[in-house]
Design a protein around this nucleic acid. Sequence first.
DNA 1: GAGTTTGAAACT
DNA 2: CAGTTTCAAACTC
Length: 926
Amino acid sequence: MDSPKTTTTTTTTTISATATTVSLSDSPPVQESPFSNYISNLSPIKPVNTARVAHGLLGISSPPLVFKSPHTASDRQINLLRRFQYPQISGAETSKIDDGSKKSVDSPEDMVKSGICLTSSLIVDAQTSDNVNNSEQDQPGSSSGCVDEYLSDPVDADCADSVNLVNPNVKKSDDALQSPESNLTNFKIVESDDINDKGTKGEVSQARPEQDGEDPKEQPTSENKMEKIKEEGSLAKQPSHVCPNFGSDLLVDHASRQQCYTSGAQVAHPHEPIQLIAYNGSEVSQLQRGMSRRCLQFEQAQQETTKDGTYSPNPAINLFGSISPASSTELEILDSSQVELTISSHKEQTMTAMFSANISGKSPVAVSKPSGIGLHLNSIVNTLPMGSGASGPIMSHHLVENKISCSKLSNLVERVSLTAGDRVLQTKASLATSSTTSESFHNMESFNNLQPPEHQVTPHNKRRFSSEHAGNFEEFSPSSPKKKRKKASSTDGDGCKRCNCRKTKCLKLYCDCFAAGIYCAAICACQGCFNRPEYEDTVLETRQQIESRNPLAFAPKIVQHVTEFQAIDVEDGDLFTPYSGRHKTGCNCKRSMCVKKYCECYQANVGCSNACRCEGCRNIHGRKEEYAMTQEIVSNRTNEESLEGMADEKLKMVSNNKFLHAELYDLRSLTPPTPSFEYISHDKDAPQSRLLPGRYVLSSESDFSMLPSYAKSVSSPSNSHGNDMLPKTSKSLDIASHGQENYNITETTGQFSPQFDELADFSDHTPLPNPSSIMMASSASSKTQDKANVSQPQVYPGSARLSSGSSLRWHSSPITPMTRLGETKNQAQDSDCGLYEILEDDTPEILKDSSAPITSVKASSPNKKRVSPPHSHIREFQSSSSAGLKSGRGRKFILKSVPSFPPLTPCLDSEDCTQQKYQKYRHLPL
DNA sequence: GAGTTTGAAACT
DNA sequence: CAGTTTCAAACTC
């Protein structure tokens, strides 16, 4: 298959196909002529196939959602999953194939890379799909992509992903049509190659009966591919880790794959290959991590589990721990989003860590915990908030800490283990450094990742692993309940939950794990835990009971809702204004003043809202009063905007997005602050930031002015930083528009950003071509930037955006990203209204209230153009990331990038920003 | 590490 | 729906 001839032809075909596809995409594909048929096949939009694919995917993937907030399972997630799967696969195979893949990839991918992504998502998709479809070769190649490719790919991948996200249909169609042979085949092949597992194939086949017939073909093709890969592999850079790791990696990958396959998300995407390349290391690790983490996907999990018959049909899985396929699937889904976001950011950030880790060689230990990813929206939310803000490294460290707590790994090591991107980094690192080191490291990670966090607790967790499975939680609890307890703080860096339940058996919402829809892990210090795969039935029953009482009991507590400021410009640019999350039911704090983690709002890094019944609210993320004010303002804005600029905005809309954005920003700046706004600013410090919409603040100056007041307020510790940040931020913003430069600047910004809302404001104000760019700049952490520079230099402005988005993920994502992502993704895809999306699902009534207005605004007025300035705050960043997600709904890359954020960020932020904040808060009178 | 505080969850 | 109790996390020492 891989013969050069084929490749060439394929490429050519692909090109033509691509062009054709593009045209076709718009109109129903012409099926009559063979050529047209072929093209049509390539074309992403085919209902029939799509349906089919959807079935497989949906059936598997969707159900598993732990949360009822159903949206999470959306196509997008699936896509994400797919990505991960690919990466994994690619990771294993890639190692073998890398070089070959590069070659093959080069032609096809290059085209894609060439900026197609930027040019048009459709085109990209078509190409990617075409490439994949046309020749299986391509996929492997893409997947296998060399390190460089990986680096470059990320962007492309992002683009593709974003595209996919944007047009789920397209993806589906592509997958269904094209993938069946190529993609599916690849997967199967890969699996077969890697593991030779019947189960995997069987699973896949189950997922897609259709494919059964294809299998035979696939294998041969796979073999061919493999051969090619091998041949090329020598040439290619090959991520050293990949090949060497096989033992572990393969297993891991396989396991993850299986899960994925099982879930059905496994369906390969033509696009994914590229993505895979990009994400390879990180994604894989993350996936594995996610895998390791047991999620309760209650209903689905059961079903799937039943089907599978065992949590870990594959030996590999078993090795790592019992992971219910279903759960894994869900996790993956959730994780995938996170991972994706995380990956890019992690890649960059992690790079350093990776290297260090590699050097240290402690990596194994570090790996212990899957960065993961907790996966539940709730968990995510919670976790994110925790870490909101700090620098990438810190975050990683933070995350790792949980893991590390048990182990005493160096920070570096921890970092390494933490980041999903590690692999990527490793890959890179391996290139730079000796492959061996990276390899070992990778292997370790993979195992660790796969292993449940519990095991991971200690570097030697692996050992436990077996025991763990065999034994119940009890085994663990006895081991070190106390220790665990302490460290076991509610969330791991990853966002994984840990509990210390003693009386509830982890079957009540008291248990964070249970509440998050995940099984307790070894890390948990719970006693008499029934929240384990072994007691799945019990868990499900209990869950149902609880749900019967409160259908939203397992829904994410933090709902993202568009705030006024969050205004969305979705039309062209898909600007996603950051949106802030709110606690679904609000808090009821009476003595903590919402400045301690006792407050769920504060804990989630979200401001208090009308739903809160708190007393003396001083939530730095936004006071309850402020929230009310904001709403008022928003309503006012809406009115004003609708009146003012309907026509103007439309005109602008017509103009380029950049133009539009810039103008919008300007307009915002111009827009006189609403009285309420001013009032708010005066009144409140930190909270104010939130209230202060960027638009209100005309210029950085205004921001500065704001800042002082803000700083004055004792409550906000960040103020000082904020001041510093602002200037930097502004710079970063300017630069950001230019592209890669952003990264450098961004770094500085990123560090600060987490804490400051102002940044968001700036970003808003700054006339960046794309909001995403802004986001990126602001969000990107120094580490990320560095990495980006190194790894992503390839990326171009357009791509940069994407990448930047990823970087943002780091910073901003922390909050709810996961949750949001899941929800958002689904929602986004669903309808045009990215904004609505959030509200829709999870947002409970309360949120709806706030949201409703927004949506109305959006719909009614051209406001969309305006990118409402984010709330200033860490949240804002996060929100921004989430915003990205929203954008995703639109179609843009941003979405993808946004989703990815969430996972890791928290950790990063957590240390720097969070701690600082925390300390400051402590000072606050409580 | 033990004990206290806190607020959500659960219960009445 | 409100009040009380239970619970586990967050926090303090």
